[in-house]
């Protein structure tokens, strides 16, 4: 359990898709003008990532990896299909997006009309393919870890886009130098947000240590109140 929580927190804050790897920047910049639309796109990304990463994980471990086909026949134990990774992953993503679109259209027309235009965009959102490729590179042990990683990176992306949208709504009232308006200032703000997110890097995810530090904190607080 602790491993899962670890991966979850790490993928949201420390290895944030936008601030640490610049993935999904295109839609991040294009769709972050208002908070409402960015919430819609963010939710769609969380959803699609939560589905495609485990599916691709299964493919990777039972079809693509060297020796992964052994479950079919002993003779396949030397087959290495990993050069097909890209084409298979992108096919899964494109078809999953199509599927999600059809399901949402059927069961929740209201959600569909608000997400409508964003869903096809997601197929070419690099955060989605990027998450699958990172999953492959880091070689997660179980499908649970892969799913948690997918959801975590989705939520991290969601936080980033909602944050920048809120800032951009406010910045309309400030006096930005003309040449920096629009894209330029958005870049710089994202950079500043990235620096802020880098402070999460110091987080050590070990339960025992955390408890000690909170106890100490409480004691210090008590002492202070006594003094007062």
């Amino acid at each position: 359990m602790q491993d899962l929580a670890n991966i979850f927190i790490k993928s949201i804050f420390i290895d944030n898709m936008v601030f640490a790897y610049f993935l999904g920047m295109c839609s991040y910049l294009a769709v972050s003008k208002t908070v409402k639309t960015s919430v819609g796109l963010g939710l769609a990304v969380v959803f699609v990532l939560g589905i495609t990463v485990p599916v691709n994980y299964t493919l990777e471990n039972y079809v693509l990896k060297e020796g992964a086909l052994t479950w079919l026949n002993e003779g396949f134990s030397t087959v290495d299909l990993s050069f097909l990774t890209f084409i298979l992953f992108i096919a899964v993503i494109a078809s999953m997006v199509q599927l999600v679109e059809m399901i949402v259209e059927k069961f929740s027309p209201a959600l569909y009309s608000s997400l409508g235009i964003f869903l096809p965009l997601i197929a070419v959102n690099c955060a989605i393919l990027g998450a699958s490729l990172f999953m492959q590179e880091r070689a997660y042990g179980t499908i649970g870890e892969a799913t948690v990683f997918g959801l975590g990176s989705g939520i991290g992306w969601f936080l980033a886009i909602v944050g920048i949208a809120a800032i951009r709504e406010k910045i309309r009232y400030s006096n930005v130098p003309p040449a920096l308006r629009g894209l330029g200032i958005t870049f710089i703000i994202t950079g500043l947000m990235g620096i802020a997110f880098m402070s999460f890097m110091g987080i050590k995810l070990e339960d025992s240590k955390k408890e000690v530090s909170t106890e100490e904190f409480v004691q210090v607080e008590n002492n202070e109140t006594k003094i007062n």
Binding site: A179, L180, G184, F187, I188, G191, L192, G194, M198
Partner: peptide, 19 residues
């Protein structure tokens, strides 16, 4: 070298281009 500075450098590039 840190990732956020890529964004800021790029922002400055855009700034200069638009000036």
């Amino acid at each position: 070298i840190l990732p956020p500075m890529a964004l800021v450098t790029c922002g400055v590039y855009i700034w200069i281009q638009r000036m």
